[in-house]
């Protein structure tokens, strides 16, 4: 009856099995499927694939130069000896590591609170989500203004509370600027992790908690033996996606500090942008971006594999 397999369970049975001779049915099916996805991949190749290749080529040779004689790996060799690049790489790891860790801690905390029996849960859920709806550029602007040494709300509050004796230059002090930027980013970024983990929490079967209670588990044992194991997958997904987004972060840092003062917030995306569009070191900037892209693809690969196989 069902000539054309339509679902995974049925589909796997009669086609796609490696080594089996392709039937005419299989060929027709493949052709139809490809016809539907073709526009997407043609467009993707045009707007994304081609520029990606150009960027890769550009990291070895100036663009639109004739022949292969100009090819050199010097730009990559230079990267390895360039303290500005290496420092920026370390700074990127610091920024991404700190923001993602804090997103996870606050996101998990907030998800647990919102999953417990509290009053006005829906209202608090909306309040918890609000910062994530703000474009990162705007988050950077608002926090930059809150950090204003004389007219900003943060120093004023800390002065009134007696925590500090004189105004602090949050964004002009090299040792304070990165934590300040990180705090602004954490404000904007943690609600997404919260949202994912909350969905994960709500999917845990209630019976497991009841079983744990019967076995006499306390709250901590419940958390470590029931909640965390169930959340593992969601935590992994949220972490990988967040690492990738954070490593690409640009707007927030650009409007707050432009990478300064004295490069103290110059993460790789800012450095590569500046090398390309301010100093016109096209090849060198491309090499930096390729390194960043490779790191991200490697980080993201487990997620891609796991999700694509299940799809």
């Amino acid at each position: 009856m069902n000539a054309v397999p339509l679902t995974k369970s049925k589909g796997r049975g009669c086609l796609g099995r490696r080594g089996s001779p392709p039937s005419s049915l299989h060929r027709r099916h493949t052709r139809q499927g490809l016809a539907f996805i073709l526009p997407c991949f043609v467009l993707l190749g045009l707007v994304l694939g081609f520029p990606m290749v150009v960027a890769f080529v550009n990291s070895f040779t100036p663009l639109w130069s004739r022949g292969l004689s100009g090819f050199t790996i010097d730009y990559y060799r230079r990267l390895l000896q360039d303290p500005i690049f290496l420092n920026s790489l370390v700074r990127t790891v610091y920024f991404v590591g700190a923001t993602v860790a804090l997103h996870l801690v606050l996101g998990l905390g907030m998800a647990l609170v919102l999953n417990s029996a509290i009053r006005a849960r829906r209202l608090f859920r909306i309040v918890a989500l609000l910062p994530w709806t703000v474009p990162d550029v705007v988050a950077g602007l608002v926090w930059g203004w809150m950090y204003d040494p004389l007219s900003g709300i943060l120093n004023d509050a800390l002065l009134r509370l007696g925590v500090i004796a004189s105004p602090i230059e949050w964004l002009a002090t090299p040792s304070l600027v990165m934590p300040s930027v990180i705090l602004a980013d954490v404000w904007r970024g943690y609600p997404f992790v919260m949202l994912v983990l909350l969905a994960g929490l709500q999917a845990i079967p209630k019976e497991e908690y009841e079983a744990a209670k019967v076995d006499g588990a306390n709250a901590f044992q419940e958390f470590f033996h029931v909640t965390l194991p169930h959340l593992g997958r969601m935590i992994a997904i949220a972490t990988i996606l967040d690492v990738i987004w954070q490593a690409r972060r640009f707007g927030l840092i650009w409007v707050m500090t432009e990478g300064g003062p004295a490069r103290s917030t110059e993460i790789l995306s800012v450095l590569a942008y500046r090398q390309y569009f301010k100093f016109f070191n096209f090849e060198y900037a491309s090499a930096m971006a390729v390194v960043l892209a490779l790191i991200l693809v490697v980080v993201g690969l487990p997620y891609v594999r796991a999700v694509a196989r299940r799809a």
């Binding site: 493949t30 993707l44 994304l48 520029p51 960027a55 997620y303 999700v307 694509a308």
Partner: peptide, 28 residues
């Protein structure tokens, strides 16, 4: 709806393309 050969790979490409940083592409 279609389970053609290379489907998993193409889905992987689609997902992986979200990993590319903007700074790689803005220059070109």
């Amino acid at each position: 709806r279609f389970f053609f050969r290379g489907r998993t790979f193409l889905i992987g490409v689609l997902l992986a393309s979200q990993m590319l940083p903007g700074v790689l592409l803005v220059g070109p």
